[in-house]
Nucleic acid binder design. Structure first.
Lengths: 242, 242
DNA sequence: ATTACTAATATACGAGTAC
DNA sequence: TGTACTCGTATATTAGTAA
């Protein structure tokens, strides 16, 4: 009954995975209970009930049509699938971190304005343990990393609350601990080992649309100076759990 | 009851994943029903039953100790987990194939002897659609690929039956369609696009021990000539489903 | 054709208990 | 402490049926 986030059994998650494989992650996928039941090795009544429960749990949106239904996995449902995927990655790749690659861009310079606002800055001091340099390092992710970015959803973030002043409201954000690795101007590694910066954080609005290829990074010091970065330099960002 | 391969529900698979995360893939892991029950959010009776069912299905081997039990995921259980992992990879990476990288080695030259035996050759003609060149291309996989090789378990193989003559028996094998890509002597790509060979097959004994870093490839023609390969040249092998 | 209800049945669960 | 049995109860499932 509840519209809010509900837990769902493993049978339901398997059903969610099936409709996701049918394309319900990228948009709406057309399915029928009978076809689902066949692949689930169960009756179509069971398939129907699984979909209902997934909808109740907020993992699936459904739209009935005459000859079936169109379903779409919600962001909550995708988080559930990402958590499961992260388990299997840890299992077979021994890889708990998310590694993203991209190039340094000048960005819009808007990050500088926002993060120096006291409403955010105080939370950074409290929850990250430092006052970040008044500017963000902007990274343009390559195609693969823009997709892999969604894996960050499975990592426990540090929450930054939204707030407001007299003029407007400022939205909530998420931070993840990150190590910035300078791979080099041409994709080759620069020095031996000194081109890493370990105490940075990726910061992103709480509600990010997927496939976004822009990543913003904050750190106690100016990363462009610390790592001698120029626009176009290649970076690898290792994002980890809180 | 059946000792042979049995299907198992999604709840049991989740349990298998848990003990695998505890290290039951690499060796035996020590678990207790109570601790498992806690993580499964269920009673310890349920945890006990799940482990029993996994054992009955041949996915888990158990050994009781005084204060708990030591469990190990069987190869059958690992296959089940790999299949699940493959689903999630397809879901989030759009990647159905398994890509392995390594370098050309001279190998032992034993492959030449085996594959030209008529007991195998006739099956190659029937099931692969060609008579392979009388020799195998040996590839030494890098560390990551030696691990990733296990993902081939999730791909449907072409079966090659074992057989025997007067002297001895010859074991069964599995084949997977593969594309061989010549990456170059130094890790750089050679020409533009002509350094790929698409109609090859990876061949491996039906029972392979994991972590094996040797890969053998057969093809209608001599791959060393077709791709101008020398020992030490870097290759990427794209293994796909039947 | 669908989806989803109701009702009978099969299965899973957890409390208690034995070892 | 463990694991795993029995057994009464809760939940899930399927057949039949309605919309």
């Amino acid at each position: 009954m509840s519209q809010s986030t509900g837990r769902v059994g493993h049978d339901e998650l398997a059903t969610l995975k099936l409709v996701a494989l049918d394309g319900a992650l990228e948009g709406r996928a057309t399915v029928t209970c009978a076809a689902l039941a066949d692949r689930l090795d169960a009756s179509n009544q069971t398939a129907s009930r699984r979909l209902q429960r997934l909808e109740d749990a907020g993992h699936l949106e459904r739209e009935m049509t005459g000859d079936g239904q169109r379903v779409a996995v919600t962001s909550e449902g995708e988080r559930a699938l990402q958590r499961e995927y992260a388990d299997y990655r840890r299992l077979f790749e021994g890889d708990a971190d998310v590694s993203l690659s991209g190039v340094v861009t000048s960005g819009m310079g808007e990050g500088r304005h926002y993060i120096s606002l006291s409403g955010y800055m105080e939370q950074f001091r409290d929850r990250l343990g430092y006052e970040p340099f008044a500017g963000t390092l902007n990274v343009e992710l390559d195609e693969e990393s823009a997709r892999a970015r969604a894996r960050m959803d499975a990592l426990d973030p540090i929450g930054i609350d939204g707030w407001e002043d007299d003029d407007r409201t400022y939205g909530p954000a998420f931070c993840w601990p990150a190590t910035v690795e300078h791979v080099g101007p041409e994709g080759r590694r620069n020095g031996a080992d000194g081109d890493r910066y370990a105490d940075a954080h990726v910061i992103a609005p709480k509600r990010t649309h997927h496939g976004d290829d822009q990543l913003e990074i904050i750190a106690p010091e100016k990363l462009r100076d610390e790592l001698a970065l120029d626009d176009g330099d290649h970076l690898t960002i290792h994002v980890s759990e809180q």
